[in-house]
């Protein structure tokens, strides 16, 4: 819609100096990008695509990793696991992938997107139903969500958000999916579902226990939802990584006791023994 803004502005402003300005802006851009790429060569910089629920924990993990590995910088890209997988499949320059469910990582493995043998589970989580802090009558079971008082329920979009898939599986097992789906507000990541509950725009939402703990002053946990498959987090080195050594070092670090302690502090449980 750039043409649109020209359309409105043009008749009122003579454009005498524009070409010169454009040229110098272009020159500055070129200089800046050259400087940036020079810096990238000097130090290894790895990009870690991680599930949205890992946001706070991985920031801490990354800071300690950087301190222990001078010269290696970690950039994080947080989103729902589905979109992260799509980005990698479409050639995004990612070095490490950490998803919030086995299924997304299975897909990555099947499509040859992650390095064979580098995959390992590093944490587990729990699925919970949260309600706004000031909710008068929190639900006590999945069936309670059928009550008319629960007009809208935030659930991650099952096609791309793992927490939505866990939720759908749990509700299908309880034979409630079709009726709860009618109240579903699809969230693009677990954090969006959490935000909708925190703002009171929905009466309830399905999130991970670690997310609920982050917003304890605005949401409360109504009950824990038993899931058929445990909520577990696999991590792996991306096959197309240009910094495979640094990426592998990061994966090893995430599995090491200090990083595990950080994850524990953020509420994640230990990975189930293989």
């Amino acid at each position: 819609m750039h043409c649109a803004s020209d359309f409105v502005v043009a008749p009122r402003r003579p454009q005498v100096r524009r070409p010169g300005l454009l040229r110098s802006a272009a020159r500055t851009l070129v200089a800046l990008s050259l400087a940036a790429s020079a810096a990238a060569v000097a130090a290894a910089e790895i990009t870690v695509s991680a599930a949205a629920s890992l946001t706070n924990a991985f920031r801490d993990v990354g800071a300690v990793f950087e301190a222990a590995n001078p010269g290696t910088r970690v950039r994080f890209n947080f989103a729902a696991s589905g979109p992260l997988l799509q980005q990698i499949a479409h050639g995004a320059p990612v070095d490490v992938f950490a998803s919030a469910d086995a299924e997304t990582m299975d897909q990555a493995e099947r499509r040859g997107l992650v390095r064979a043998g580098s995959r390992a589970d590093f944490a587990t989580n729990a699925l919970v139903v949260v309600v706004p802090r000031d909710a008068a009558a929190p639900p006590r079971s999945l069936a309670d969500l059928l009550a008319p008082a629960f007009r809208r329920v935030a659930i991650g979009v099952p096609a791309s958000v793992p927490v939505g898939r866990y939720t759908q599986a749990a509700l299908e097992k309880a034979n409630l999916w079709a009726r709860i789906e009618a109240k579903m507000i699809g969230a693009q990541s677990v954090r969006q579902a959490l935000d909708y509950v925190a703002r009171g725009e929905v009466e309830a939402g399905f999130v991970y226990a670690t997310d609920a703990a982050l917003m304890a002053e605005r949401v409360k946990v109504a009950f824990k939802v038993p899931t058929e498959a445990p909520v577990r987090y696999p991590i792996a080195v991306v096959a197309a990584s240009a910094h495979a050594d640094a990426a592998q070092r990061f994966v090893t670090y995430v599995l090491s006791p200090p990083a595990q302690a950080t994850l524990r502090r953020h509420g994640f449980a230990a990975p189930a023994s293989p």
Partner: peptide
């Protein structure tokens, strides 16, 4: 992004791409 209710074209594109 509620299908049939608030899921407009541009949002449907976003969701389709996210889900592959």
């Amino acid at each position: 992004s509620i299908p049939g209710e608030t899921q407009t074209l541009s949002i449907a594109v976003y969701e389709a791409v996210q889900a592959g």
